[in-house]
């Protein structure tokens, strides 16, 4: 028989598949509070997908066909502008879902999703999801909660995307933390800068890149070199 596997290997793969499905159901907020009978009925509608690092799972603008839940790995959910700039919406880690909004809304994929490492996913096709929701009121309630969280995430992102203001705050942080008159050098992580600027870590990376593109700083391996202190001060709204 083509593709036949040794019994022990086949058993191992089946066991892995079962564990993946179980993990998927346990990890996701969608299935919280459902009893085993309900979970079993949902499990019948699921498919699994393994994706290699760098592979794009869904493309922005294409018809939304399925909702995905990350079992292992990390998926980057992002939008791309016409001039190629990338905006990360969020990183989906184990238990997180993506592409749920357009699937429930009946539209096109709102964003693209790319595996940034080897990723295992489980998914439910759009048509099957509707049938499952009709049969499981608890699942429908969970969906409302997940989508509410998604709206909260988007509102937070909109807040962060008052982009220039964040860049100004980052510029000020850099000036304040550049080596002092005693030659003392301070070290900052992007997470710390995010906390200081009151924004998301991802925004710090984008702000630093913007400042570098504008020639105000140079990013090195573990150094941020201020190359135009005066211009940085103007962005920060402080005199230098």
């Amino acid at each position: 028989m083509p593709g036949a596997l040794p019994n022990n290997l086949e058993a191992g793969i089946i066991l892995d598949d079962m564990m993946a499905e179980a993990d998927c159901l346990q990890l996701s907020a969608y299935f919280s509070g459902l009893d085993s009978e309900e979970l079993d009925s949902i499990r019948e509608h699921m498919f699994k997908k393994s994706v290699a690092r760098g592979e794009v799972i869904i493309f922005e603008g294409e018809p939304a066909t399925a909702i995905y839940i990350v079992i292992s790995g990390v998926v980057k959910v992002f939008k791309t502008s016409t001039d190629g700039k990338e905006q990360i919406i969020y990183l989906a880690r184990p238990g997180d879902s993506f592409n749920d909004v357009p699937v429930f809304g009946g539209g096109l994929n709102l964003a693209s999703a790319e595996a940034i490492m080897q990723v295992n996913l489980c998914g439910i096709k759009k048509d099957e999801l509707k049938a499952i929701l009709l049969e499981n009121p608890k699942l429908a309630e969970n969906v409302l909660k997940v989508l509410s969280q998604r709206v909260e995430q988007m509102v937070s992102l909109v807040e962060d995307l008052s982009f220039r203001r964040v860049t100004g705050r980052v510029a000020k942080i850099l000036l304040e933390n550049a080596e002092d008159t005693n030659g003392q050098r301070h070290r900052l992580t992007q997470q710390e800068m995010a906390a200081m600027a009151g924004t998301a870590r991802e925004m710090i990376g984008r702000s630093l890149k913007l400042l570098e593109d504008e020639g105000k700083v140079r990013l090195e391996r573990n150094r941020i070199v201020i190359t135009d202190k005066k211009a940085l001060g103007e962005i920060a709204g402080v005199s230098t």
Binding site: V74, L91, R93, I116, L174, N177, A178, E179, R185, H186, R187, L188, T189, Q190, Q191, E192, R201, E202, G205, R218, L219, E220, R221, N222, R223, I224, V225, I226, T227, K229
Partner: peptide, 26 residues
Amino acid sequence: CTRWCTMCEMVCPTGAIQCPFEVVTE
């Protein structure tokens, strides 16, 4: 890496990895 990508820091769910930068003026 020619420069820190800091992806490890970014994906760490517990904040166990840090890629600190020092800030210097040219």
